[in-house]
Amino acid sequence: MRALGRGLLAAALVTLPLWLADPYYLHVAIMAGIFGVLALSLNLLLGYAGQLSLGHAAFFGIGAYTSALLTLKCLWSFWPALAAAIALAAAAGWLIGRLALKLRGAYFVLVTISFAGVISLVSVNWIELTNGPLGLPGVPAPDLGPWSLRTKPAYYYLVLSGVALSYAVCRRLVRSRIGRAFVALRENEPLAESIGVDVTHYLVLAAVVSAAMAGLGGSLYAHYTRFVSPEVFLFTYTVTMVIMVIAGGKGTLAGPLVGAVLFTVLPEALRAAASWQWQMLAYGLLLVLLVFFLPRGIVPQIVASFSGHPRSAPGSRAPLR
C-alpha cells in the first residue's frame, strides 16, 4: 500500500512536464522544488537538531551569488559553480556553527539574523563585485553535456534531481546514529552529553549540511531566474522557509516538502482568485488556522490519524527507524 503510493507519487513527479505542459504551472513546480530544497535544509537544523536559524536566507544567497559570479565573471560552467556554491555555503555554515556553539535558543537566533544582515549589506555595498542593488543580470542557463537546460521541462528535471538528492541525504542522516545524535541534542542536551554525544561536532555538522543544502537551493535559483540581486537575502525568504517547515511538520522527512508545495502553490492560486490585499489576508488566516488545528504540522497529523495514536506526544516525533 505504502510502496504503491510512493511509486505513484514518483511516477507523477517524473511525468509531470508531460501532463502539465503549461509553462506557468511548470514555473510553479520549479519554485516549489527550489523551496523544497530550502525547507529540507532548514528542517535539518530546526526540526532535528532543534536550532532555529532565522538567517537561513544568507546561505541561500551565498549559494546564489557564488554560482552567479563564477559563471558570469570567471566563465565557469554551471556544474563546478554549483559545487563551489555548495562548498562556500557549507563553509559559512561551519563558521556560524562554531560561532554559535556557546549560544542556544534566542542567542543563536540573533547570531543567525545578524549574520544574514551582514552578508546582505556586503552584497549591497561591494559594488565592484556584486553590482550592488542593481544585481547581476544574465546568469547563464546550465548545460548538461550537449544539452541546454534552458527550457522549463529540462530545468524542472534538474530541480527534481536536487530535491531527490537533498531528500536522500536527509533520510540517510536522520535514520543513522548521526540523526539520532541531532535529535538527542534537540530533546535534552545535557543528557545527550552524558551518553557521549559530542555537542560541538554534531551541532557544527548539522549547520554545515544544512547550509550546504541551502547553497544548492541558491544556485538552482540563480540559474533559473537568471538574475541575482540583494533581494535573495530578504528576511521574507527565511520566514517562508520557516512557515513551510513548521506547517508541513518539523522533524519529519516529508513535512518540509509538503509545506513547500503548499506554500508555493497557494499564493499563486490566490493570485488568480483575488486581489493582493485579499491574498495576504487569506494567507494569514490559513496560517493561523494551521497553527491552531494542526500545531505539530500537516504530516505528523496525517501519520497520527492513520496509525491510531492521535496523542502520542507533544512536539514532533522524529521517525528514527
Binding site: 535529535v183 535534552n188 528514527l320 527507524r321
Partner: peptide, 15 residues
C-alpha cells in the same frame, strides 16, 4: 528524550 519511544531512547543511548 521525552518525545521519543522507549526503544528510540535506548537506541540513542547506544551512540
Amino acid at each position: 528524550f521525552p518525545s521519543l519511544s522507549v526503544a528510540d531512547n535506548v537506541l540513542t543511548g547506544l551512540h
